[in-house]
Write a protein that binds this DNA or RNA. Structure first.
Lengths: 339, 339
DNA sequence: CTGTTAGCGCGTTCAC
DNA sequence: GTGAACGCGCTAACAG
């Protein structure tokens, strides 16, 4: 049962297909009588014009831009997305934005394949997800320009670089500079699949600093779990129950840092008096809550990624964007010198 | 200069169009020699396969869903969007989501027109924007199912209802119940164009309650400005400089409420001891900051809107969604009885 | 006013 | 292996 076409409608209404076309585009003058008959036939058959065919015959080349990202529900991705929107702005005619929300690694490859096979995209922005050689080829073959925002850039494609390891070092160095020697890490479970390893990378920065200052690495001070405020809360509770507990916590994201803080407070301790807490991201929320954190310029990175893509697509209209500022330590009220 | 087609490529490579098609789909066995010639021609001409034509000939009906909203950068819209994503979920093959971000009222109508003329959408969700009769007709004519999330629903189209007036009354009644008689309103400027009037509506609820309790309405206690934390901060500063200042403030959004709170604190006053503050929305942020507010079920409303649309599109796969819970007063730590 | 015809660009048969 | 038709569903231009 394929969907009805104007041909079917024409047959049922006893008219030519041209007339049907006129009716659905309510252009030209069609006699009121035949118009009614056509409309009736459309009703009866449940006819819906096929937009793809319509586009082809009208010669419109869809100018859509895609964004592939995971975890769209995280604030950090939302803020990046905001930057993307800013970059697209309000050109006339505008590019439209198609969101591809990757929820499982297995689906990622399927999704890219689907995009290259059937999406009508001018360009694609891939956020914090790896781009394999095959995917690069597939994208190029289908004429889709792409840019990645990534921790693992290389020269084989345009890419806005992030540096999770280095930025994490910034955070932990801050704690060390405050005199802390007993520092814990709270983050996401390390992924074994082919996602980028944000938590691994930030944990790597954490380890580097410990090593650099010859501080002991204690596995029981590294807590990994699902992402989220409540999960971080639970992990921190366990952390505080240890015989020897840390005096500072580096949480791999601001949302998790807020969970850490709640747990510390609920344990009858004070932040930063008893325990210092530093987060990562600098989402908008963090300014409101006074959280010390690492600013990774979320909005700017999204904007920059999209600007890079636009520049690729239309060099005359969009100039090459400025590079991303380096991650920056933002000291607020949740870290203090070791007593 | 129209873009090159496979025909042009075929001519340049001295082959038939069938061969070109095989090459770009790297299917079938093409001799290595001719493949190279074709690839070269593609290079030379800068040929990009036309996805629309490709779709038509393959019979894929684009199954995209659109979301029209304004102010995508506001947290409240982001949380609605999260709900929308949840509803779409991960069906296989999935619907993709196209974002139409309306930044000026004038552009809204153009945008809808563009959507009806050239977008390949199965359905459209219109969030907090009015749908004129003409727009309804245009959408129906182009076979695009649509659902609105709106404060002004009527029977002419499927719609998830909001009630800003009633919900605002809830907020102000709470303040009155706490003994407050001098209540200020901080909100967005009233729009004169054809957007929905969120600020007007919430202000209307505010006025209703004052009238109901025979409280005086003082124009100088109604502050309207641009949306944002900092703008709300400035308005509140002015408010506190008045000879007679309010003892409670109803901010039309949580983000603005946070600005109000900062201003109160910076003026050397305490919240809620000296001034009670209530917001509106219950964005995630508000739980973290202890803000008393009105929960309008943002995420649920987005989810519900999209579920309604999906149910319309595929009644067999998606059941009719449950209705939206009523707005709810969430009392936290920023409101207290009048001293 | 209305039926017919020729494309839109590409995938997919077919024969060669 | 490869070229040349045919058709996807629709719009537009042309006759009537």
């Amino acid at each position: 049962m394929r969907p009805p076409t104007i041909k079917d409608v024409a047959a049922r209404a006893g008219v030519g297909i041209g007339t049907v076309s006129r009716v659905i585009n309510n252009s030209a003058q069609v006699s009121d009588d035949t118009r009614q008959r056509v409309l009736q036939a459309i009703q009866d058959l449940g006819f819906r014009p096929n937009t793809v065919a319509r586009q082809l015959s009208q010669g419109v080349n869809a100018q859509n831009l895609g964004v592939v990202l995971s975890y769209i529900s995280h604030y950090s991705f939302m803020e990046r997305l905001r930057g993307v929107q800013l970059a697209i702005g309000q050109k006339d005619p505008p590019f439209e934005l198609i969101l591809y929300n990757i929820m499982s690694p297995r689906r990622y490859d399927d999704q890219i394949r689907a995009i290259t096979r059937q999406a009508t995209l001018a360009g694609l922005l891939i956020i914090a997800l790896p781009v394999s050689l095959q995917q690069q080829k597939a994208l190029r073959d289908s004429g889709i320009q792409f840019v990645a925002i990534s921790d693992h850039c290389n020269d084989s494609y345009p890419c806005v670089g992030l540096d999770n390891v280095g930025a994490a070092e910034l955070a932990v160095e801050h704690l060390v500079a405050l005199g802390h020697r007993h520092i814990a890490y709270v983050g996401d479970m390390f992924k074994t699949e082919h996602y980028f390893a944000t938590s691994q990378d930030r944990h790597k920065g954490f380890s580097h600093v410990l090593k650099r200052h010859e501080l002991e690495y204690r596995p029981q001070w590294v807590r990994l779990g699902l992402h989220g405020r409540d999960e971080a809360y639970a992990m921190t509770r366990d952390l505080l129950n240890l015989d020897e507990r840390p005096t500072a916590v580096f949480a791999m994201s601001d949302v998790q840092a807020l969970g850490v803080i709640s747990a510390v407070q609920d344990a009858g301790l004070r932040v930063p008096h008893d325990v210092s807490v530093i987060g990562f991201d600098d989402i908008e929320l963090s300014a409101y809550t006074g959280l010390t954190t690492i600013r990774q310029h979320l909005e700017d990175s999204g904007r920059l990624g999209m600007e890079t893509l636009l520049h690729l697509l239309r060099p005359d209209e969009y100039s090459a964007p400025h590079p991303l500022p380096a991650p920056k330590l933002i000291v607020r009220q949740t870290t203090a010198p070791l007593r």
